[in-house]
């Protein structure tokens, strides 16, 4: 398939991944100044920074592919909730520290094998963005995994909270591995990884960490989805209201 025919699918992929990073980066930023300890505060702020950096590159690329003159800022600050394509997992509210860690671990354990695969994509821009980001995602998954173990293998209270956090986030994890038309188009061209090996890598890491933490795999459904089609929970609108208010109130302002 010619590169021009792949353009719409490439654009959707860059936008989905960019929205994932943007929304999770915004969520984590809310911990700044509120985390349980100074070290955790620094860690969450650093991870947020990495994610917003990823979003800048991915949404910038999506805007170029779209060719309608929208840059990363335009896409981040001037779209409505139905136009966002992030997975439901990243928009889940922070909850307590355990739920934030559960969300981070389940997300980063998916993003790592995905970006490793995308770093070998024949789409050179996507490949270089993924190759750049993947080094940092390795830190994220280790940090979050360590905390799943510490909380799961900790006190009765921390263990209960960690299990509850995982159960809460678990409902939306199936969406990470769902394939649709866009993904099949790119997969056929070798530009998007087949979800099956990504799922296998994710399962292996999740099982290893849960085993170290002495926690069971959540038993409930993982089938809640809709984010990739713009069907979000009520929480995303509140997040966007806060994130977008300034540029929307002063659309012509410049720094």
């Amino acid at each position: 398939m010619a590169t021009d025919d792949l353009r719409p699918a490439r654009m959707v992929q860059a936008m989905r991944l960019g929205d994932d990073s943007l929304i999770l980066g915004q969520r984590l930023s809310a911990w700044c100044g509120h985390a349980p300890t100074l070290e955790i505060d620094l860690a969450l702020a650093n991870i947020a920074l990495d994610l917003v950096g990823q979003a800048t590159l991915l949404l910038g690329y999506a805007g170029e592919l779209e060719g309608a003159g929208r840059n990363a800022d335009r896409l981040a600050f001037h779209r409505d909730v139905r136009d966002f394509r992030n997975c439901l997992l990243v928009e889940q509210p922070n909850g307590d520290f355990a739920r934030t860690i559960a969300r981070q671990f389940l997300f980063s354990a998916w993003q790592l094998p995905l970006f490793q695969a995308l770093a070998r994509s024949p789409d050179p821009r996507m490949a270089e963005i993924a190759a750049k980001a993947v080094k940092e995602v390795g830190y994220h998954v280790e940090f979050a995994g360590d905390w799943v173990v510490r909380l799961g293998d900790g006190t009765e209270d921390s263990r209960r909270r960690m299990a509850e956090g995982l159960a809460w986030c678990w409902r939306t994890t199936g969406e990470l591995f769902a394939a649709d038309g866009m993904q099949r188009t790119l997969a056929t061209a070798g530009e998007a990884p087949d979800p099956a090996p990504i799922r296998a890598a994710w399962d292996a890491r999740v099982d290893a960490v849960l085993s170290d933490a002495g926690l069971d795999r959540p038993a409930g459904t993982d089938a809640v989805r809709g984010g990739r089609d713009g069907l979000h929970g009520e929480h995303l609108g509140h997040l966007l209201a806060e994130m977008q208010v300034l540029p929307r109130t002063h659309p012509d302002a410049t720094w």
Partner: peptide, 8 residues
Amino acid sequence: TPTYTGCP
């Protein structure tokens, strides 16, 4: 070249 993706 940037050091970290999100380096301010």
